[in-house]
Simulated scan of single mutants.
Amino acid sequence: MIEIGSRARTLPAPPFAVWDSLVEPRRPGARPWLHLLADEVDPGVLAAEKPSQVVWSSLWPSRPNDQVRFALTASRDGGTLLRFTLLAADEAPDQSKTGHLRRRLNQLLFADLRFSYGQ
């Protein structure tokens, strides 16, 4: 696997809540946050270790072998430091596509997911 992107930011919810959101993003009763584009699909959970790790399958049918790995650690303020790492199993995409994939993960996690917690 080739790392093609990584970023860490804090979220206001504790690790167990963020882990739940990543493992079951469309859980009944949860606030919706996984708003996909037409060229994206719901990710599958390939591995999970509560409350510190989650691995998703690719969101992009055009790149079916990619993975998104998440590392969750408690932050000092009671929230979560969430790091995503985007991994390509095949050849890395060109610079434009790589930028698009990174931007989408940033939007989904550090805007949409963050706002689902009310902040």
Score class of each variant (00 low, 15 high):
I2K: 13
E3A: 13
E3W: 05
I4W: 04
I4V: 11
I4H: 02
S6E: 11
A8G: 12
A8D: 09
R9Y: 02
T10I: 11
A13N: 06
A13Q: 08
P14F: 07
A17P: 02
W19G: 02
D20C: 04
D20E: 15
L22F: 02
V23N: 04
P25M: 06
R26F: 11
G29H: 06
R31D: 08
L36T: 07
L36F: 08
L37H: 11
A38D: 15
V41T: 13
D42P: 04
D42A: 13
P43E: 03
P43G: 06
G44C: 04
V45S: 03
K50I: 06
K50C: 11
P51V: 08
P51S: 09
V54L: 03
V54S: 03
V55P: 04
V55G: 01
V55L: 08
V55A: 11
W56K: 00
L59M: 08
L59I: 07
L59R: 03
P64Y: 07
N65H: 12
D66W: 07
V68N: 00
A71H: 12
A71M: 09
L72C: 07
L72N: 02
T73D: 07
D77F: 11
G78W: 08
G79A: 07
G79F: 03
T80V: 03
T80C: 06
R83G: 05
F84H: 09
E91H: 08
E91C: 05
A92P: 08
A92W: 01
P93I: 06
D94C: 05
S96W: 08
S96L: 14
S96R: 13
S96F: 13
K97Q: 13
T98P: 00
T98M: 14
G99M: 02
H100M: 11
H100F: 13
L101H: 07
L101E: 04
L101K: 00
R102M: 10
R102Y: 02
L105Y: 07
N106T: 03
N106H: 07
Q107E: 14
L108M: 10
L108E: 03
L109G: 01
L109Q: 00
F110D: 02
A111I: 13
D112P: 00
F115E: 15
S116R: 14
S116P: 15
S116Y: 14
Y117W: 15
Y117K: 01
